[in-house]
Amino acid sequence: MSRRRAELLVAVLLLGVAACAVMFIVVYAQSWAHLTQYLALCLGGALALLGAALILAGEKLFPAEEEAVEEDYPPTEHPMEQYEANQLLAETAERFTRKRLLAGAATAAGAALGAALVVPAASLGPLLDTKSFYYSPWRRDRRLVNEDGRPLRAEEIEEGTFYTAYPEGAYRDELAAPLVVVRLDPEELEMPAGREGWTPRGIVAYSKICTHAGCAIALYRDPKFAAAEPGPALVCPCHYSTFDPARGAEVTFGPAGRPLPQLPLLVDSKGDLRAAGQLSGPVGPAFWGVRTRRPSA
């Protein structure tokens, strides 16, 4: 393969890198990001082409330099040598445009690949506008329903087990929607100040989303003999963050930094459980300014 053809091929490969990287950005921006195979295909293709371009450049474009260094300076009195030198100079001038093509292709490939790697960072969330994190579907008098949409009745909530509840008539996939509901002996409750009357008949409700990494609180520790065993606890199965349901879900173990937000409850005239207000704090993992505001509808 001649040097000229090799240079052209390298340029084409580099442009291919740029094209693949741009395709990655397009796939990502079109919210086809769930099609991870296509994303991998684009990124993998870009990297493979880049590798091919580097190998080709290393093999065909640069070895001449090493040879040139090893050669002795040619004696001036040989006309043949001088002719060759002139020839080389002329060739260099002719190659100037191809060199620019190569440099341009390399720049395009680098820029596109860099952009492809940076673009997904946009999905980390709004940097300054955190308003949407405070949204909660809960509001006063909204009923608590179970997985099947049936209202939870206060009298059917038993001690020693735990229930999952959702807001009636609201979108369940909202982070603030699911609750974990347990009933404790009202005499054992030691709620933080200002939460009087939030726990009718000893029934407490907290956000089911762990404040550490956003997993669902799926474990409930229920001692059979409180005098000699660890107390009741809501536990996240991901990293074992442990919350005390009798004390406003304060963290007793594990990596979580904040207590689970609590929902004040009331029992209506029919005996159904309803929200008596808004959650006590923002739901889920921490973000900038998480302790400054309460959620709202």
Binding site: E158, G160, T161, Y163, R221, D222, P223, K224, P230
Partner: peptide
């Protein structure tokens, strides 16, 4: 019955 620290799961659950 939910032995030791395990919660019990009544028929409603």
């Amino acid at each position: 019955t939910g032995p030791f620290l395990m919660p019990k799961f009544p028929k409603s659950q």
